[in-house]
Design a protein around this nucleic acid. Structure first.
Length: 373
RNA sequence: GCGGAAUUGGUGAAGUGGUUAACACGCCGGAUUGUGGCUCCGGUAUGCAUGGGUUCGAUCCCCAUAUUUCGCC
């Protein structure tokens, strides 16, 4: 019957970084943590066992997509999302809120909910906080997300203020509609890079008392790094220490480090898998593009220091060939590596928190990755 | 051997007597942050088979040569 529990193990001495433990119905995991994204009940190209092997904990699936296809009833009939997709680790479902930002025309947002144009067949569909929660209840994920609006970072103060207030009303409605005793429900803090709006949103969201808290609305709309870090800094001070904090949609190595330093515990991002499909790989010494001609005869692994299956067995030249030939095995190999890279990063961050030297770790990482002094 | 047609970048090709030779693929780069996977954005022929000629000007007109191709003997 337990939903989710966060235990703060240790705070880093010089920053807000936290080492914690997350107890879920599908295992106990340490944070900081990176969640691979499996929108349509699959982390693209990868099998569940492979995800476990690279050390991933929670994965993210998407309410909106699974609602449209195959439909939450079919997944419920299968015995829930875990059984349906054969993943026995924890699953978090996004609420569909991000689709408000990416799919819906802004004028289709009302107090009641959001009108979407179904991207599969063009049908108009209404997603409301109650509906989003009902779908997530049926999907039976470990963590459900509140249905929020994710306004563009460039939104005006006025728009943002109205938006966060509506998101708060939606959060309350969603919480009241929530009806799955072993599923946790997270609230989402919005407010762009406006200090008082982030504060207001955080305090009011916490008042509603959720099982965990997210910081949303970052890394969109060409938002500057500076604004992203501000959005985090303006939010985390108002979040309770005994609840987990999740920064939504963030996954560049630099942003994960900066997020952890500002007190974030969980991240998710499509970047490792999307970059992989386009031939880009993370390495200790920066991101590389395997399509580049210089890798044609490079018979060394993507990253000599990496312990993943890909780096243990395959060369850049081979993977470049697969990507050039549009073979899916190439995307698979890089996806595996990229996810392992980010998870390894969180492992290193955990170690740095234990040792109270996260700023030193950051400096060294940046030197290697970005060539900074 | 005779006659016809063709010859434009790595490939398939469009095109006009007059500034920067269309487009597609490929190639070379770049992008990508709660995913509408195989997308988006750049760059990529100092030259239009070769040599002459006509013209103020030719990739586009004329001649020759070469190559390819089709038909006939």
């Amino acid at each position: 019957m337990s939903k989710i529990k966060y235990e703060l193990i240790k705070k880093e001495a010089h920053t807000q970084a936290r080492l914690g433990k997350l107890y879920t119905n599908h295992g106990v995991y340490e944070t900081p943590m990176f969640m691979p994204v499996g929108t349509q009940a699959t982390v693209k190209t990868l099998a569940p066992e492979e995800l476990k092997k690279v050390g991933s904990g929670i994965i993210l699936a998407n309410t909106y997509h699974l609602w449209l296809r195959p439909g939450e009833d079919i997944i419920a009939e299968a015995g829930g999302l875990h059984k349906f997709m054969n993943y026995d680790g924890p699953i978090l479902t996004d609420s569909g809120g991000f689709q408000v930002f990416s799919l819906a025309n802004p004028k289709n947002i009302s107090e009641e909910g959001v009108m979407f144009k179904n991207h599969l067949n063009g049908d108009k569909m209404l997603l409301t906080p109650e509906k989003s929660i009902a779908i997530q209840n049926k999907l039976d994920s470990d963590i459900a997300m509140s249905f929020d609006e994710c306004p563009p970072a460039s939104a005006s103060y006025e728009y943002m203020e109205n938006s966060i207030k509506r998101t708060l009303r939606w959060a309350k409605r969603g919480k009241e509609a929530h009806n799955n005793p072993h599923q946790a429900l997270f609230g989402i803090v919005q407010g762009g890079a406006y200090k008082d709006l982030r504060k207001y949103s955080a305090i009011k969201t916490v008042e509603l008392d959720f099982d965990g808290y997210s910081i949303g609305g970052v890394a969109n709309d060409n938002e500057s790094k500076e604004d992203m870090y501000k959005a985090i800094e303006y939010s985390t001070p108002y979040l309770p220490a005994d609840k987990v904090r999740y920064l939504m949609g963030v996954g560049e190595p630099k942003d994960i480090i900066e997020g952890v330093i500002r007190g974030v515990d969980i991240f998710d991002c499509v970047l490792p898998t999307r970059l992989a499909r386009h031939g880009h790989a993370f390495t200790k010494y920066g991101k590389i593009n395997l399509k580049n001609a210089k890798f044609k005869k490079d018979f060394t692994p993507i990253d000599e220091t990496c312990d993943c299956y890909t780096c243990q067995n395959y060369t850049k030249a081979y993977i470049k060939h697969l990507i050039n030939a549009n073979e899916t095995f190439g995307a698979r190999l890089i996806s595996l590596h990229n996810i392992r890279f980010l998870i390894k990063l969180t492992e290193d961050l955990k170690e740095a928190i234990k040792n109270d030297n996260i700023m030193e770790f950051k400096t060294e990482f940046y030197q290697n990755y970005y060539g900074e002094k």
